[in-house]
Amino acid sequence: MAKQIDVENLNVYYGDFLAVQDASVNIAPLTVTAFIGPSGCGKSTFLRTLNRMHEVIPGGRVTGKVLLDGEDLYGSDVDPVNVRRTVGMVFQKANPFPTMSIYDNVIAGYKIAGTRKSKNDFDDIVERSLRGANLWEEVKQRLNRPGAGLSGGQQQRLCIARAIAVEPQVLLMDEPCSALDPISTLAIEDLIAELKASYTIVIVTHNMQQAARVSDRTAFFNLAGVGQPGRLVEYDETSKIFSNPSQKATEDYISGRFG
């Protein structure tokens, strides 16, 4: 079942540097939430705290709470590996494993982690995940070819298939379309609309039309200035953010009068 995320007073650090200050958001299950804001405002950093990927970076740490259906992800006995199995992630740059075929890339979450399943189960997972990522028809004839041989848009959908193959409850997407052409972008946006039926989705995007098209709620992050931490400026229904934002900074940003 898709889960609810509640972030309470989260501060995100790189070493001593405070990257995001005092952010709180509540994300309902089976919704799409978009994070928008200028480069360097901490929206990707904030996203990575939602599945404990932030601490992979040396010096990365947080204070505050991230609750997944009420359970604190940063609790002392929580295993980050289990968190990441529950909260999947798709990255800005498509990153299929270069040593693996398309088939193996999809089940990489099981194969690398050492989970054994029968060939039939794996076949089912591969077909279901690739169908889920709208890639099945394009690659079903060449599942044993290297994943790195696909086009950029196909690689990104392969990465989405890989992420949903392990059946997470939340899917985080960090600018998944920023390197893609408009047609591939449309394919992924359609996909997000379909995935919403099964997953709670959080997407970081620089493309405001995209945020307006795909998301139910939008969070706007901004920097007070150079060297200042990023802050969550406004978080509301997408329609309200784009038509009648309550903050001046939000209005300036979405209307292009920023800075």
């Binding site: 990927m53 199995r85 040593t99 690398i112």
Partner: peptide, 26 residues
């Protein structure tokens, strides 16, 4: 690339398995 390690961690794979199954083969 760090992206490959990230991809593996994000799938819920422990670090040592990431090294054995992703970093070394690559």
């Amino acid at each position: 690339p760090r992206e490959l390690r990230d991809a593996s961690y994000a799938l819920g794979v422990p670090k040592w398995r990431t090294i054995v199954k992703v970093v070394l083969p690559t």
